[in-house]
Simulated assay, not measured.
Amino acid sequence: MDAADLDHRTRTRSGCIPPELVVRLLERGHTAVVEEQAGPGEWFCAQAWAGLLAEQGRQTQALEVIAPYAATGWWTAVVEVAELLEGWGRIEEAIETVRARMALGHPDALQHYARLLARHGRAQESSTLLLPHAGDGSLARALVEVTGAAGRDEEAAELLTTRIQAHRCSDFPWCCRGFDTDTAVGLLATIRERQGKPLTRRLVSPTPQPLKPIMTTPRRCRRHLAHRDAAAQGDTPFDRRTPGAAATVLALLPATCDTRRSVRAGAWCRMIHVPDARHVRSRCIRPVPGRC
């Protein structure tokens, strides 16, 4: 068996018995057929048969079914072995299985290894492995998941904030491998929510200024700001002369709307996608023709 061939066949469902058919065979009692086909490169049969053996407590036989696939270095089979071992409580063996594959340089191995460590009381070690890779999208997501248990949220937040302030997408998604500023803001928001801190513009920009920074703030953060400002305003009239009002999303609405008492909060979400304040329109429930 060849890892590349196995990966191609399972991804494209070509040249193999599809998982739906395997399920149907098992439902109709044709376990012997599934067992027979589990050997000669039929991954979905092997996976299902190993699962049945694992349920029966036949751990050695279950691993023997998956072993030829894992021996090719195919990542999917390695993960299957690690999950079986973890499910049986053989944690150190599961960790060593993934670590050995990580040493060969598989791109998904580090995040899987780090999550596995974090699930079993080694969050500090997991965070140490991931912190240097905060600029990689998939690894940054894993980092945000594990730093909470390790008590290192602030370190991850500092790295994400630095990226948000410094990174400028020039040719998304190729310029940053899909890890754009909006994604980084979303991960930062996850950390701040876990810490019980509101995500404000100050968490993204150290020197907030009225109007223009709001329009240049990443879209996902603007959504948070829009919901925050609309909820704080409620149904009271908006007065842009109030201290601090100029730094809110509401200040981007035309002055003719300041006296409207009932404003649909969800409308602010539509407004924040507008790239230029000159094109912002009001969304009053009872708009004044020609003015709103």
Results as ranks from 00 to 15, higher is better:
Gly73Trp: 06
Trp74Gly: 03
Trp75Met: 13
Val79Leu: 13
Val79Ala: 11
Ala82Gln: 05
Ala82Ser: 07
Glu83Asn: 11
Leu84Glu: 02
Leu85Val: 02
Glu86Arg: 10
Trp88Met: 11
Gly89Tyr: 14
Ala94Phe: 03
Glu96Met: 01
Val98Leu: 14
Arg99Phe: 10
Met102Ser: 12
Leu104Asp: 04
Ala109Val: 00
Leu110His: 01
Leu110Pro: 00
Arg115Val: 00
Leu116Ile: 01
Leu116Cys: 10
Ala123Gly: 05
Thr128Arg: 14
Leu130Ser: 05
Pro132Thr: 03
Pro132Glu: 09
Gly135Leu: 09
Asp136Leu: 04
Ser138Cys: 01
Leu139Gln: 10
Ala140Phe: 03
Glu145Lys: 11
Glu145His: 05
Thr147Phe: 07
Ala150Ile: 05
Arg152Asn: 04
Glu155Phe: 06
Leu159Pro: 01
Leu159Thr: 02
Leu160Trp: 09
Thr161Ala: 15
Thr161Gln: 14
Thr162Asn: 07
Arg163Glu: 10
Gln165Ile: 06
Ala166Gly: 12
Ala166Pro: 08
Arg168Tyr: 11
Ser170Gln: 15
Ser170Tyr: 12
Phe172Lys: 15
Pro173Asn: 12
Cys176Gln: 12
Arg177Phe: 11
Gly178Lys: 14
Phe179Glu: 15
Asp180Lys: 13
Asp182Phe: 09
Ala184Val: 03
Gly186Phe: 03
Gly186Ser: 08
Leu188Cys: 10
Thr190Lys: 05
Arg192Asn: 08
Glu193Thr: 06
Arg194Cys: 06
Gln195Glu: 15
Gly196Pro: 11
Gly196Val: 04
Lys197Asp: 13
Pro198Glu: 15
